[in-house]
Design a protein around this nucleic acid. Sequence first.
DNA 1: GATGAATGAGGCTTCATTCAT
DNA 2: GATGAATGAAGCCTCATTCAT
Lengths: 195, 195, 195, 195
Amino acid sequence: MSAAPQRREEILATAAEVFAAQGYNATTVREIADAAGMLAGSLYYHFDSKESMLDEILSTFLDELWARYDAVLAAGLGPRETLEALVIESFREIDRHRAAVAIYQRESKHLLAQPRFGYLAGSQAQFEKAWLGTLERGVATEAFRADLDIRLTYRFVRDTVWVAASWYRPDGPSSAEEIAGQYLSTVLEGIAPRA
Amino acid sequence: MSAAPQRREEILATAAEVFAAQGYNATTVREIADAAGMLAGSLYYHFDSKESMLDEILSTFLDELWARYDAVLAAGLGPRETLEALVIESFREIDRHRAAVAIYQRESKHLLAQPRFGYLAGSQAQFEKAWLGTLERGVATEAFRADLDIRLTYRFVRDTVWVAASWYRPDGPSSAEEIAGQYLSTVLEGIAPRA
Amino acid sequence: MSAAPQRREEILATAAEVFAAQGYNATTVREIADAAGMLAGSLYYHFDSKESMLDEILSTFLDELWARYDAVLAAGLGPRETLEALVIESFREIDRHRAAVAIYQRESKHLLAQPRFGYLAGSQAQFEKAWLGTLERGVATEAFRADLDIRLTYRFVRDTVWVAASWYRPDGPSSAEEIAGQYLSTVLEGIAPRA
Amino acid sequence: MSAAPQRREEILATAAEVFAAQGYNATTVREIADAAGMLAGSLYYHFDSKESMLDEILSTFLDELWARYDAVLAAGLGPRETLEALVIESFREIDRHRAAVAIYQRESKHLLAQPRFGYLAGSQAQFEKAWLGTLERGVATEAFRADLDIRLTYRFVRDTVWVAASWYRPDGPSSAEEIAGQYLSTVLEGIAPRA
DNA sequence: GATGAATGAGGCTTCATTCAT
DNA sequence: GATGAATGAAGCCTCATTCAT
């Protein structure tokens, strides 16, 4: 059931691309197999099911994401610097795992209901805690405006970051860091000129 | 093919809710029928196909959206006021047609390829033109910062507005106008305090 | 269940045309209703079922056919004259009930199996008896060639006559009687010139 | 889409028998699958659709038929010999592909309208040309009677030949060649004794 | 490791039929 | 006499999955 690791990774990367392009439900295992240069039945030598491919794609992504986030959160930065670092790490993650991020965005909401994907809920809660905490700390220390609706701001920031996975291209004109910079400038300073 | 308008609308509203909650592909016609209190086959008295329900949901939504947008664009406002009005109308549209907006967000990308949904591409192009034009005008007249990456800003603004459909609840604590206000404040002034 | 006779006849004639054009199975009651200027459900005021329409079309046709055939067979004609008269009556029947004949040709074989259409078997047996008997009598009296394979000849004659229903048009260049004449000339004398 | 040739052929032959016995529309894919010893869904490993089975049955039959007809027409025979050869080849084709011929007879008329089966129209036109031409040539050279209505004669001859597919049995008392002989004798010489 | 062939559940859709109005 | 709306059975087809080779 495990077999040569490299073929597995290839297939998984292929599957992630197809899932991201068409949606998990709309993707047939035959399409994945075609893209991987094999027949549908052959996938089952490497994976238990279509669902287990999805599971592996998402959990691998989340594991890596949390490794980065945890490093940032443990660094003892101020709220503004924390927010900057989280945003930069998020765009880097989009750069590295674009397909996985896009799948996560699209599918996590209904997957939450299934026990197998329960860990998505945990991740989401941690995620919210990290961002909300940073925003709250920032308001308390006057790093951010006092009149922010924190929950709304959290949602705006979160959505804008992750939705970028749907249009970001690694070979596009702007690097992940450049996009993060532009984004931070917009969110922190606003698009209106400062007096 | 047309039939009693009221029942049609009911079914369509029901279908939109289910599509928004589960995704178009993952929704079975039986689920729509159950939610509408009828048998699956009975839907076909009112509609040609599952796809034609989706079509009608999306085109109705876009028609209404464009009526509002066109009114704003024809009003001769300055760029900042235009942007504010577009954002407000967008949140109002989310308030009125939350399900349709959520479906649009989730499905429009693959639907574009199908001839039947070609109008989505047209709408998208117009959309881009309206927002990009407003941003450009704003930079030219110094209503917006001179160093904006206009395309990136457009994407940030567009995505964040529409993604709100995935969490907005009409009976939630904030009205559409309040959310629009908070959002505009963030985007225009930034979350960092002004000197 | 019975109601105004004239409307019934109209509907039945309409149904027969549609059945003949598309086949019984491939015809929907909606198509019949459309052609008759009403809704599908309304047909059920006049008829019990789609099948009962078919039944009435076929039995009406067979009743009339047998009235004519019986008159011919009772006339005490010689075999050649009997055959001529049967052929002429057959083409006249095609002229009068083209649709019913075409339906009979296409559908009678499988209908035979259903109890409701058992009478088709009876009719077919009588039919065979009349034609085979005439041919046998003709061979015996030297009105027909002595070396005929009577069963094969019967099939040739029978099929060719009735298949004409699939191309005959009442408003075509040749009348039923003219076609019968040509056909009889071919079958009786052959297409090769007589010495 | 292509797959193991032998299983395909078996299924196709089975489908042809069922189509011939019950009609294309009245045949369910489940019946075909039952007759082929598999489940309905399994047919779709070998064929795209029920319609594509029909298509393959008919086009295979017509390809072979035309190979034979073309050989006859290219042989430079006189009109009577050409007609004899065409009739003999036709009965041989009925012997080889009885089911396909029966299906062709029953279904070709409505299939003509569908683009996919447009080739049926072409075949029909060629067919008419071959037979009409032979008859015309025969009348011109006095091989056939001068007073023939050629179009009517064509129809009679065509119908009688092909309708035989509905009753012919390969294991019946008469071989294809014997039936052809009897038929030619009837058509050429007539059933009345020559003076 | 992979293929070819099949399974079986389930999806969308059609359609004859019913029935209250 | 007819309509509008629904029923429920059945049809074609898709697809994740299995398994012998």
